[in-house]
Simulated scan of single mutants.
Amino acid sequence: MKLKITWLTLFLMVATQSYGQYGDGRYTFVFLNTNPDRAELPKEQVDSLQAGHLANINRLVKEKKMIAAGPFYTGGGIFLFDTNMADTEAVLSSDPAISAGRFKLEVYPFDLMEGELCTLWHKDEADVEMTTYYFVRFEPNKDNENIDGVKTNRFTENLLKELKGKYKDKAELVGAINLNTNEGQIIIYKSGQEGGIEELFANHELVKKGLMTYYHRQIYFPKGIFCED
């Protein structure tokens, strides 16, 4: 899949340190889910909204509010912010594509479970290396009445131990995120092979019990955001 070089303008990393684990969240994670009910618009209008979308991202990067952004290969994408939830929601409304209903947003405070965030601010745009990572999201099944009594991150921590142990030859953990207020976890890893690890995610204890669901995608992201080599 060919992606335009302009995606490189989306990414900035600011120096960070966690303020404690699994609390209210220093950072904010935004899912930009493609809206299936978005209006059918002329190509010229869609292109204009996309240009405004990118320009707004560039502004937020320059203001050191946005940490990074990247698209899923299947559509939609994510934002990482170094602002609290209220401040993040305030700036999201300035995005013309979001205001036009092109995306359905999910906005969550988060903390790091594994890895750390490094800054790429010192790099020129052309020197930011883009790469493909695997992205796994575990999400609580809120239709299950038992989910409120479960701290889901504890079970995902057990899975991370397996990923770094039994599966270390198949995948390299890049980072893991806990979406606060029990909204689930995200695992980002890299691998030089297709498949061979899906059983690990399917065997998550809470997935097997029906308390969580998960999906597994590829994402195009700047290398080094989690201080990885």
Rank of each mutant, 00 (worst) to 15 (best):
K190W: 04
M85V: 15
E106I: 01
T131V: 09
N33K: 14
P71R: 07
F29H: 11
Y22F: 12
D127T: 09
I5D: 15
Q21A: 13
K65M: 14
F201M: 03
E129F: 01
A39H: 08
G70K: 02
K170R: 13
Q193T: 14
G195K: 04
L163N: 00
T181V: 09
G23Q: 05
M66A: 15
Y220W: 10
N84Q: 11
L163R: 00
Q17T: 14
N158V: 15
E139M: 14
G115M: 03
D82G: 14
T83P: 00
I78V: 15
M1Y: 10
A86C: 02
I78L: 14
K161Q: 08
E106Q: 14
K223D: 08
Y108N: 12
K151M: 13
T74S: 15
C118K: 12
H204P: 02
Y108H: 14
T119R: 08
L80C: 05
L10I: 07
L211N: 02
E183P: 03
V136H: 06
G192Y: 02
I219N: 11
H53G: 05
F31H: 15
A176E: 10
K164V: 00
H122F: 06
L211Q: 00
P96G: 09
R217D: 12
I187E: 03
A68P: 06
E162N: 11
N182L: 04
L105N: 05
Y189H: 07
R59C: 01
Q21S: 14
G23I: 00
T131R: 14
A55H: 02
E44D: 14
Y134C: 00
S99I: 00
I147Q: 06
L41Q: 08
D169W: 02
K43A: 15
E129W: 01
T6W: 09
V136R: 05
G23Y: 01
F201L: 06
M13V: 07
L49W: 03
C118S: 07
D95R: 00
L163P: 00
V174P: 04
N33S: 11
Y27I: 07
L206E: 11
R38S: 14
D87S: 15
F226H: 04
K151V: 14
S191N: 04
G70L: 01
V174M: 07
E125R: 09
N182M: 05
